[in-house]
Design a binder for these strands. Sequence first.
DNA 1: CTGTATCCAAAGAGATACTG
DNA 2: CAGTATCTCTTTGGATACAG
Lengths: 109, 109
Amino acid sequence: MGDLEFKHAVETTLKVIGGKWKLVILCHLLDGVKRFSELKRSMPNITQKMLTQQLRELEQDGLVHRQVYSQVPPKVEYSLTEYGKSIKEVLDVLNGWGRRHRVRMKLQK
Amino acid sequence: MGDLEFKHAVETTLKVIGGKWKLVILCHLLDGVKRFSELKRSMPNITQKMLTQQLRELEQDGLVHRQVYSQVPPKVEYSLTEYGKSIKEVLDVLNGWGRRHRVRMKLQK
DNA sequence: CTGTATCCAAAGAGATACTG
DNA sequence: CAGTATCTCTTTGGATACAG
C-alpha cells in the first residue's frame, strides 16, 4: 500500500472530480446533453466564471465534449464523452460509502 | 442522477478522504499500527501541524484509532479502525480509474 | 447567449516558536 | 515525543464589469 503509483493514481482521480462544482456538473451531464444556460439555470449558486472554468477542466481531462454552433446568438452544448461516462462507476462507489458514512455519523450523535 | 442524496453522499466521501495528506496517511496506516513519529518520518514534507490536524479529522470520522500511552516520553499509536479499513475498497476504485486516466492523458500528448 | 478579465475574500496549508 | 499557537502564504472561489 505504501506504493507510490497507488497514491499518484488516487490523487489523479481526486483532482479530476475534486473541484467544488465538478461533481454537480457531472451529475447533470449524466442526464444528457445540456446547453451552457441550462447548466447555469440548474445550478443557481454557481457563477459564470466557475461554470466555464470547471467545464474547461473537465473538457481538458477528456470527460466532457463541447459542441459549439457558430450562430448568433451563440449556442454551446456540453455532453459527457464515452470516456466521461466511465466516471459513473467511481461516483457510484463514492456514493455508496458516503451514504453508509452519513448514517453511521448520525447514529453516533 | 440529479438526485440530491447522491451528490451529498459523494461529497461526504470526498471530504473524508480529500485533505491533502489524508490519502497518504491512510496508505501508511493500511500497512499497520504506526507511532506519530513514524508517520512523520515517512512523510518528510508534512508539518507536525498538518499531521496532527489530519489525524484528528480522520479520528473524528471514525477511521482512525488513537492509542495514548501515559508515560514519559509520551507514546501515541495510530491505527485504522475496522470501519477505517472499509475505505480501502474506495481507494482501490479511485486507483483503478486514475491509473487508466494517467495512461490516457500521456498517450494524448 | 456564452463567454473573458479583473479584483477581492475565504479557506487551506506551511513556517516557526513554544510546551507538558 | 507529541503535540499547540500564531503568523504568513498560497490556492481557490466569488463579484462585478465588459465583449463577441
